[in-house]
Amino acid sequence: MTPIVSDKIILAPSDIDLSYSPLRKGLDAPTYVLGAFNPGMCRLANGNLLIMVRVAEALSNAVVEDKVHCIRWANGTYTMDAWNLADVSMSDPRKFRINGYNFPVYALTSLSWLLPVELNQDGSSIEHMHYDKIIAPTFTSQEYGIEDARISFIDGRYYMTTCCVSSERHSTMLYVSDDGLNYKSLGIVLDHQNKDMLLFEGKISNQYYALTRPLGECYFATAPGSMYHPGAGIHQASSPDLLHWKPSDEPFLRARKSSLSNVKIGGGTPPVLTQEGWLMLYHGVENASEVGTYRTFWALLDKTNPTAILHLADSKPLLEANPALTINMQSQVYLNDVVFTTGIAPYGDDYILASGELDLACRITRVKKEYFSVSHHN
């Protein structure tokens, strides 16, 4: 029996009004919404859901004559940089590689900012677009944008992690809010490359815990007979104050050769506490084309020892990309086979999941809570 109760696209690029875009400050060139996707999610005090949407805004004409352009924030304004087409490689539609270096150097085809969008209680309709609450780059560490918010409700406050992209570092910034809508930056909390930092929604033994995914330019081989692939995996860290983090000495969750997640894995939703343990949804990537196939999987972790995995569901995906959901947006589709789940909230007997579909739109899926019980799968 399918665990899915309902499944729909709640927000598409055409729903975004770019007259409110922060890029209007300094940038005269025409732009369009490449994607409105990967939404963090939380439950507001009024009972409504809030999704924090990543809006990837791209130049309408990035290539002019023999040059390709990208958008960059600097000194409170937005500007365009130009690169000779002969000096770049453009196999990935989301970025281009600048040749001439002995290591990978990229520029993005879009710049991302965050838009809070309020939904009704079950996530089936949009209540309000909070354009007055946009979160845009304000630090040099965000010169190429702010990406992929995740929101955790801890001790009565909302904590949001975001990925910050810049030439100086690829970092994680932490924001805090008392109402889930107005956020204040607490600064960078991880300044090594780490794409998916997710805070557990609650303390464990008086410590805060987080899932992390450290990245690197290269990886070392696993043993020839190892069950694991080398590459990006999910790890854990703990903190006394949410600002200073100690990585775990032991690995946590790695890409297994026998699973569909056989290239790399990374965090999806912040872990939430259930009767059986901490429920975490994560993404796994399988080799396919330039980007790969992204699917959503899940695991249950021990309540008091979150490094202990009670149940790992990595052989059958919970969510896959659903072409039927984006059939009316075919002219805008630039990726295939990508679903990226970034938010979770309880609703009666179900969980409401927020995902990015094809790096294009926001998908809301209701899933039966009972599906995540270990006894359900025994």
Rank of each mutant, 00 (worst) to 15 (best):
E357N: 07
Y351T: 06
T304N: 15
L360D: 06
L335Q: 05
D359I: 01
S331I: 02
Q332A: 14
I309E: 04
L319C: 03
I364G: 05
G356V: 01
Q332W: 08
L318I: 09
Y351K: 07
T293K: 02
V339D: 00
I327V: 14
D314W: 00
P323F: 03
T326W: 03
D314K: 07
N322R: 14
T342F: 08
D337E: 15
V338G: 00
P317V: 06
R295H: 07
G343W: 01
L353Q: 06
L335T: 02
N336M: 09
L318T: 01
L301T: 07
Y294N: 01
L310M: 04
F340T: 08
G356T: 05
A299R: 00
N305P: 08
S355W: 04
V333L: 02
Y351H: 08
L318S: 12
G348L: 09
E357K: 04
D314P: 05
E357G: 06
S331L: 03
D302P: 12
P317S: 13
K316C: 07
R295L: 05
G343D: 10
A308F: 08
L325C: 06
A361Q: 06
N322P: 13
N322C: 11
M329P: 02
K303M: 08
L310F: 11
I309V: 15
V339L: 00
L360K: 07
Q332I: 09
K369W: 09
D349R: 13
S331D: 14
L360Q: 09
M329L: 15
A321G: 04
A324Y: 03
T341I: 06
I309M: 14
T365P: 12
F297C: 10
K369V: 11
P317G: 12
A308L: 14
A299P: 05
V338L: 11
I309G: 10
P323K: 02
P323R: 04
L319R: 09
L325P: 15
Q332P: 09
L360Y: 08
R363N: 12
L360I: 09
V339Y: 00
I327H: 09
A308Q: 13
L360T: 08
W298R: 10
S355G: 13
C362A: 14
N328T: 12
A354D: 08
I344A: 03
D359M: 01
D349P: 11
K369D: 12
L319E: 05
E357I: 08
G343E: 04
A308V: 15
Y334S: 07
T341A: 01
